[in-house]
């Protein structure tokens, strides 16, 4: 039975090995007790590469690149874009998700939760 927990759209966490895993290519992405972004490649994009200016002037439908940059986080195995974050230049990068692995595993072991098709389900509840 798979021990993969779906944590993001294409991001899994192997509860047995406590490793982040790419949901597209199964690349190992690092220790699941650490920020997953540390196991991903990072690229900084000018927002105009995604939101092109539609008109001339200071306010153009495109974010001002002096105010904000787009950080893209890729799986080093397949190039999947796992996360993005819009940040002012130099702003600390956010660790968005810190799961309490010990608590999850304890609840699974106690039968309180069931890992069903990659998602946690309370025992006795039906899959939705």
């Amino acid at each position: 039975m798979s021990s993969l927990l779906h944590v993001g759209d294409r991001l899994d966490l192997d509860l047995e090995t406590e490793r982040w895993v790419c949901g597209k290519c199964s690349q190992d992405l690092g220790n699941a007790r650490d920020n997953v972004k540390r196991g991903l490649l990072v690229a900084e994009r000018d927002p105009a590469e995604v939101h092109p200016p539609l008109i001339a002037g200071e306010f153009t439908f495109s974010p001002n690149p002096q105010w904000v940059r787009i950080l893209e986080f890729y799986c080093p195995g397949c190039g999947l874009q796992v996360e993005t974050e819009y940040l002012p230049p130099g702003h600390p990068i956010t660790n968005t998700t810190e799961l309490d692995l010990d608590a999850i595993k304890a609840r699974l072991a106690a039968g309180e939760l069931v890992l069903d098709d990659g998602h946690l389900r309370p025992a006795g509840e039906e899959q939705r």
């Binding site: 972004k37 990072v42 080093p76 230049p89 990068i93």
Partner: peptide, 24 residues
């Protein structure tokens, strides 16, 4: 496009070290 991402992507620690020196 996926190959291009891998080519331009940098390791997190190296990127963060440089990124954190910047300021708006």
């Amino acid at each position: 496009a996926r190959r291009a991402r891998i080519a331009r992507g940098r390791a997190f620690d190296a990127f963060e070290a440089e990124w954190s020196t910047r300021k708006p």
